[in-house]
């Protein structure tokens, strides 16, 4: 099996230092909505300068290079043992090259491992075997500030008048955005999972963030709710960095999964504006990056 360690280091470099174009485009459009001379507009201008500088110099967009979340889709015949080994070696190398900040801290002994490797779960790697010849590795870097403002609700949530239906989902998501204020580095992107157990619900709320900006759910009801939540979140007036302003949320992505009769979880993963996600595809000898 081919050794992809160097190619994965390159994936990490790109993810950490070069924001995807669809995210950058949204940020550029948002600037026009903020009043000239306002702190909100100033924040977005600085954000855009930072995006260009990071890309030009291969330096991290944000010093919090986040939780590395890998999703690997591999064809029959590849070894996940070897792929895991290569991803971990790449993570260590990318940390040496300062594409990544050492971010894995032993929670019991408060010790930073110094190389972004911590137990079996850091970095987080999800493997899935697929039909066909293409291997894809997707990487998302999700910072701690935005991870901390994520929320999970168990419906009904009486304090918000939120029942077990999409109207209730709307209410709790808006509550999560209001509670986040600017602390998750607004403007943010919302990943919402409805259903599941506590664990699967949170995982899906992140997984949905791998899709492109503006991707709508196939279900028209959920697609409409996605649009409505983005619009209503922006009515809250929290604005970039929580300075006050019109741009609080850039996009909302919702997914549904099966739940137990007794449970109705809604999980909200808040992604900061530094929405770092990249993909590499391996086909035969060729390695392509998005």
């Amino acid at each position: 099996m081919r050794d992809l360690t160097n190619e994965i280091v390159e994936l990490i470099r790109r993810t950490s230092s070069s924001l995807p174009k669809d995210v950058e485009d949204r940020l550029r459009t948002s600037i026009e909505k903020e009043a000239p001379g306002s702190a909100a507009r100033g924040a977005l201008e600085t954000i855009l300068k930072n995006i260009e500088l990071s890309r030009a110099n291969s330096t991290p967009i944000c010093q919090d290079t986040g939780t590395p979340i890998f999703y690997v889709h591999y064809p029959v015949g590849w070894s996940t043992i070897q792929l895991r080994r290569q991803i971990r070696a790449a993570m260590e190398e990318a940390t040496k090259k300062s594409y990544m900040r050492p971010n894995a801290v032993d929670a019991i002994y408060d010790k930073n491992s110094g190389n972004n490797l911590g137990g079996d779960d850091f970095p987080y790697i999800h493997f899935e075997e697929v039909e066909g010849e293409e291997l894809t590795i997707e990487l998302m870097l999700k910072g701690g500030g935005c991870e901390n403002v994520g929320r999970q609700y168990s419906l009904p949530e009486n304090t918000l008048g939120a029942g077990r239906d999409l109207a209730g989902v709307r209410k709790v998501v808006l509550d999560a955005v209001q509670k986040a204020q600017g602390q998750g580095c607004a403007p943010g992107i919302l990943g919402v999972a409805i259903g599941g157990d506590r664990g699967s619900s949170y995982i899906k709320s992140k997984e949905v963030l791998f899709s492109e900006m503006g991707t709508r759910n196939d279900d028209p009801k959920l697609a409409a709710l996605e649009e409505q939540l983005t619009k209503e979140s922006n009515e809250l007036g929290i604005g970039p960095m929580g300075f006050g302003g019109k741009t609080t949320v850039l996009d909302t992505k919702i997914t549904g999964l099966s739940r137990l009769p007794a449970s109705y979880f809604v999980s909200v993963s808040y992604m900061c504006w530094a929405y770092r996600r990249r993909k590499m595809t391996v086909k035969g000898e060729e390695v392509m990056y998005d």
Partner: peptide, 29 residues
């Protein structure tokens, strides 16, 4: 209030590192 996430941009204003304490807390801390 500094601009969250503007890490490369803000690092350019740092002209010199003149000391470090408690490196045993790890680089970020």
């Amino acid at each position: 209030h500094a601009i969250g996430g503007a890490a490369s941009f803000l690092a350019q204003t740092v002209t010199k590192v003149t000391g470090v304490f408690k490196l045993e807390f790890g680089m970020p801390e």
